[in-house]
Design a protein around this nucleic acid. Structure first.
Length: 566
RNA sequence: CGGGGUGUGGCUCAGCUUGGUAGAGCGCUUGGUUCGGGACCAAGAGGCCGGAGGUUCAAAUCCUCUCACUCCGACCA
């Protein structure tokens, strides 16, 4: 391809809408443009890179034995009504009607379509197992699209679904996908971690996420460097750390604390740390009100609470409910004499002589102790893990990092096959629900993550595997006939060798060409300049600072060897 | 959904307080000089200032409504 003919509208300035490096670079390098909030068009260079990622995914999925097909993005409401998710998805689902007033949606995820397809087409155990996948566009009306294609409303996802006869089969299908995902992200040159993830109250038996470590990631991860434990914050288990404290158990005393409502107020009033308080929060869980107690400096992990309570909706109780349950204003809730169900975090029984709300406006108790002053049988892991916590596996020190979720693999079990009546006949002629797994990769998000991890101050530094072009030829001076002739020769030679090459023969000054080459980030740059008359060109890798003068033959050989990874 | 911010040519922004119907830099077109890290000179093209209504002799500027974008939060398979 010749650069003069390519639509590659690079920008010198950073568009005001972009905050993070990958988003800025995707716009500046002319890979994509925004059409509306969370909706993007891919331009030629962006599409080329996008398809590289897609094809890596496709190859590894095919290698794993999965079969590609494609479903419509426009889906009838019936199948979602059948699974119950027409309601569950709520406003996140794009909905529309046809001319006859029939309800449709733009598919946010395709469990229902795949499950009903298998239900209709597979009747016998002989046809199982089968894993099907598609690379297809999904629609979700995100509350807040962000970071370009990282979180957007129309995006391409590779979604795969496995169908097995039993749990052992599911384990194998799951492992095959897990292995394929590792190969995919390795080939994309991503630095990623596989972390345990929450599989939800109703969900199946296991779930892991593929996380790219990045400060701009919206997910929080917990890692143990000693034993390799890794989980996202929703899932990460917390171990109580017994406190070294030889104080005797003091008598509980009620203390007047007017206008002291928040943890900060309490720290000032009692002149002690927030870890010496017990925080009592009231939650509305479906139609039940529950009180939840964690140490003052901890945060309640609502996912853990939701899973424990097995409820559908969970939210902090409103003021009226709190007043009714505690007989006090908000800010003075405590476990002593409380009229609602009490659940305490594992740390609470470990604490000694701590401060709690008195369920009486303007009063707190000090020197409270679990088991003596209040009690409950529900002692549960309820809090968010924090930096420095003990690893739940080996007791080592936990580190916290941010991550971008690029892939998610999930053992669904029979959740959808039961709901949608997807059954097969086993060897005994008995009907059984199909055991399912689901596996997703965000293609655009993967692409953006690659840029997030592979860029410098001048632009993108593409790995060869996903670069829109492998080699850029920069002709320094178009007016020099020798330079033009030699450039064209190199261009044709590389093409003949199967290298994807872009020749920058635009009538621009060299500085412009170099800047664009660095911004777009082609892995190899061949510069044809003054020494063209001697048959010498400059060979430079994008990821390295230095360049080398070489004979044309050597430069061609070096470029080919680098691109083909020899 | 709550709170903040911003909408002026393709991009980045100034002008708004104190009304007099538009500017800069970059980009684009043409000609010339240049040619190894975003050149220079000259001449051009391109905007009813997000939209609607109002105040006024007169509105990018003031008022009301509305839409879009964006940030923080809540929420989120």
């Amino acid at each position: 391809m010749k650069a003069s003919r390519l639509l590659m509208p690079t920008l010198r300035q950073v568009p005001a809408e972009a905050e993070i490096a990958s988003h800025q670079l995707m716009l500046r390098a002319g890979l994509m443009r925004k059409l509306a909030s969370g909706i993007y068009s891919f331009l030629p260079l962006g599409l080329k890179a996008f398809k590289k990622v897609e094809n890596i995914i496709r190859e590894e999925m095919d290698n794993s034995g999965a079969q590609e097909l494609i479903m419509s993005a426009l889906l009838p409401s019936e199948i979602y009504i059948e699974s119950g998710r027409w309601e569950v998805f709520g406003p996140e689902m794009f909905r529309l009607q046809d001319r006859g007033g029939r309800d449709f949606c733009l598919g946010p995820t395709h469990e229902e379509v795949f499950t009903t397809t298998v239900r209709n087409e597979i009747k016998s155990y002989k046809a199982l197992p089968v894993t099907l996948y598609q690379i297809q566009t999904k629609y979700r009306d995100e509350i807040r699209p962000r970071f370009g294609v990282m979180r957007c409303r129309e995006f391409v996802m590779k979604d795969a679904y496995s169908f097995d006869r039993n749990e052992e089969g599911l384990d194998q299908s799951y492992q095959a996908m897990r292995d394929a995902y590792c190969k995919i992200f390795d080939r994309c040159k991503l630095d990623y971690s596989i972390v345990q993830a929450d599989s939800g109250a109703m969900g199946g038996s296991g779930s892991e996420e593929f996380m790219v470590k990045s400060d701009i990631g919206e997910a929080t991860l917990a890692f143990c460097n000693d034993c390799g434990y890794a989980a996202n914050d929703e899932k990460a288990q917390c171990k109580p750390v017994p406190e070294e404290n030889n104080d005797p158990y003091y008598t509980m005393e009620k203390e007047s604390t007017p206008d002291v409502k928040t943890i900060e107020d309490l720290e000032k009033f009692f002149n002690c740390k927030s870890s010496q308080f017990g925080k009592t929060l009231l939650y509305q869980a479906d139609d039940q009100v529950v009180a939840v107690m964690v140490r003052g400096d901890r945060d309640v992990n609502e996912t853990k609470l939701k899973n424990y309570l097995r409820c559908a909706d969970l939210a902090l109780a409103d003021e009226e409910t709190v007043v009714k349950a505690t007989s006090a204003q908000v800010g003075f809730a405590g476990p002593v004499g409380l009229k609602v169900r009490l659940i305490v975090d594992l740390e609470i029984p470990e604490m000694k002589n701590f401060i709690i709300g008195a369920n009486d406006t303007g009063y707190h108790y000090k020197n409270a102790n679990f088991g003596r002053d209040f009690e409950t049988k529900e002692i549960v892991d309820l809090r968010n893990i924090t930096e420095g916590d003990a690893c739940p596996v080996c007791g080592g020190k936990i580190n916290i990092a941010q991550g971008i979720e690029v892939g998610h693999i999930f053992k669904l079990g029979t959740k959808y096959s039961e709901a949608l009546n997807c059954r097969f006949l086993d060897e005994n002629g008995k009907e059984q629900p199909v055991i399912m797994g689901s596996y997703g990769i965000g293609v655009g998000r993967t692409l953006a993550s690659i840029i997030e991890q592979n860029h410098d101050e001048n632009g993108i530094v593409w790995p060869v595997s996903v670069a829109p072009y492998h080699v850029i030829i920069v002709t320094v001076n178009n007016a020099d006939e020798q330079q033009m002739a030699l450039s064209e020769k190199i261009y044709k030679d590389l093409q003949a060798k199967g290298i994807e090459v872009l020749w920058d023969e635009r009538n621009e000054r060299p500085g412009v060409k170099f800047k664009d080459a660095d911004l777009i980030g082609y892995p190899v740059r061949l510069t044809v300049g003054k020494k063209a008359s001697e048959g010498i060109v400059e060979y430079k890798l994008r990821k390295e600072e230095h360049y080398t003068d070489m004979s044309v033959e050597d430069a061609l050989a070096a470029a080919v060897a680098f691109v083909k990874g020899i």
